[in-house]
Amino acid sequence: MSGRPIAETAYAKINLALHVRRRREDGYHDLETLFAFVDDGDRLTARPAERDEIMMRGEFAAQLDDPFGNIVAKALTLLPHGRGWAVELDKRLPVAAGLGGGSADAGAVFRMIEATRGLPDDWRARAAKLGADVPACVRSEACIGTGTGTDLASVANDLAGTPVLLVNPRIPLATGPVFKAWDGEDRGPLPEGNLRHIALAGRNDLEAPATAIAAPIAEVLDALRETGPWLARMSGSGATCFALYDDIAARDAAAARFAEVRSGWWQMTGVLR
Rank of each mutant, 00 (worst) to 15 (best):
L93K: 08
I198G: 03
P163N: 08
F68M: 10
G149V: 07
I217V: 02
R257S: 01
A259G: 13
T175M: 12
C241G: 07
M56F: 07
A106H: 15
N194E: 11
L195S: 07
I144M: 04
E260H: 15
T211F: 13
G264H: 06
R139T: 05
R57A: 14
A75D: 06
S263L: 02
R196P: 05
R57D: 15
A12R: 01
L34I: 00
A86Y: 09
S2R: 15
E207Y: 05
A250S: 03
E141G: 00
K91Q: 10
G184E: 05
D133G: 09
L173I: 06
A255Y: 10
D186C: 14
R124F: 06
V261Y: 07
A96H: 09
N15F: 04
G100I: 09
R4D: 06
A250R: 11
P172M: 12
L173W: 04
D105N: 15
P48Y: 13
F179N: 00
K91D: 07
C137H: 14
E260S: 15
S237D: 03
E114G: 06
F179I: 03
G236W: 00
P189K: 09
D183S: 10
E50P: 08
D205T: 13
D65V: 11
H29F: 08
L130V: 06
E185A: 15
P216Q: 11
A156F: 08
R51T: 03
G131K: 10
W230V: 07
G84P: 08
P120G: 06
P191H: 02
F179S: 00
D246L: 02
L190E: 04
R233I: 11
G82P: 09
V155G: 07
D205S: 13
G107F: 14
L152T: 12
D158L: 05
A128Y: 09
A61Y: 08
E185H: 14
R139Q: 07
